[in-house]
Design a protein around this nucleic acid. Structure first.
Lengths: 205, 205
DNA sequence: GTCTATAAGAAGATAGAC
DNA sequence: GTCTATCTTCTTATAGAC
């Protein structure tokens, strides 16, 4: 990885831990293994590093519209996989979703950074809501909608059903972001949540 | 309100908008209407102001264990009120909960400040989780548990049911904290969520 | 592209008069 | 308790040699 990229990487780590204002150019340089002034050969200033992190994320996302997918493919293909869906598969779906978001290093650091900067301006607020509210609900709504179409789930309001599926997972994700020691507790709760969700919305034989 | 208290109040407002590190002692003094050095007659330093805000909140909370209650009384009394519960009452319960948390000035500022400082140390992380995860789930779990006991709702896992009731409300609250213009959308979604929740968990005649 | 030296300015905090 | 003046330190950023 070249220096320019390593700066982004170390900056993202630091921003996600301490917040933009508490990270000094010197800290980033130190992690990269260069002196602070050298950093200015790669970026105009500290703000430019932050901006590039946001831009890079947007590009990663555009290049990867299936971001919300469990296995990284598109929802139609996912739906194929879930043709023979049952409760255990649904639990796996939720667990995998949770594990990916919680442990993927880039995803986690970006989410934590955005958490700390979300009130800075309207643009960042919109980015946060887009990433962790609108897009997950859209994508998961598509998946759950397909499961409804297939008769595996029953609902006359898929958006609300999706909110009820996603919100507990999101809430527990934020708990683990600030208290990683609560991961086991969270995983257990998510499994219970999904089994309950399946009972509530599943076909009642 | 005396100067010492006004400092806390203005500091809380600023911290909740910009985060601790982006608020300067001078900003706080200006809002209070004094010069920065005068501020040091009231507090040892900037950190002491922040600490006192946290302490004050803890005291407010202890003096007010019924914090999570809708009408400010204890859950047993609340349960009385909900003896003749129906879907519309449940919607009102959720709407009131949401409106209180979203609009109460002190609550809102404290929540936003804590959002921005939650990763600073374990203590703050714990405070956040306690305020916006453990305690709401405990209190609302008591309420919903009473509704189950009365036969208004049916569930063999009240904690998970409570998570499913609360998480969507919490999620929409955080959306509105960063995008206040989405309040109407959020209110509509919450009403749909609660009506759906009632259908899923309500007695099925 | 990386370094050392340093400028420029910001921010927290203190001293001491009133 | 509030002020003005000031100190100190920290932080960003630039200059210019290699």
């Amino acid at each position: 990885m070249d220096t320019k990229q390593r700066i982004l990487d170390e900056a993202l780590t630091l921003f996600s831990q301490k917040g933009y204002a508490n990270v000094f150019v010197n800290d980033i340089a130190e992690k990269v293994g260069i002196k602070a002034p050298s950093l200015y050969k790669h970026y105009k200033n500290k703000q430019a590093i932050f901006d590039e992190i946001i831009d890079e994320m947007n590009h990663r996302f555009e290049a990867n519209e299936h971001n919300m997918s469990i296995n990284g493919t598109d929802p139609t293909i996912d739906a194929e996989i879930y043709k023979n869906m049952d409760e255990d598969h649904l639990v796996k779906l939720g667990n995998d979703l949770f594990a990916y978001f919680l442990h993927d290093s880039y995803t986690k650091r970006f989410r934590k950074m955005l958490t700390l900067e979300q009130f800075k301006d309207k643009e960042l607020a919109k980015t946060y809501s887009s990433q962790y509210f609108d897009m997950p609900l859209t994508y998961q709504g598509m998946l759950l909608g397909l499961l409804v179409a297939q008769g595996f789930l029953v609902s006359d309001d898929v958006p609300v059903m999706t909110l009820q599926f996603y919100a507990p997972i999101y809430l527990l994700l934020t708990v683990c972001d600030r208290q990683p020691e609560r991961e086991q507790e969270a995983i257990k709760l998510i499994e219970k949540h999904i089994r309950q969700f399946d009972k509530l919305y599943g076909r009642n034989f």
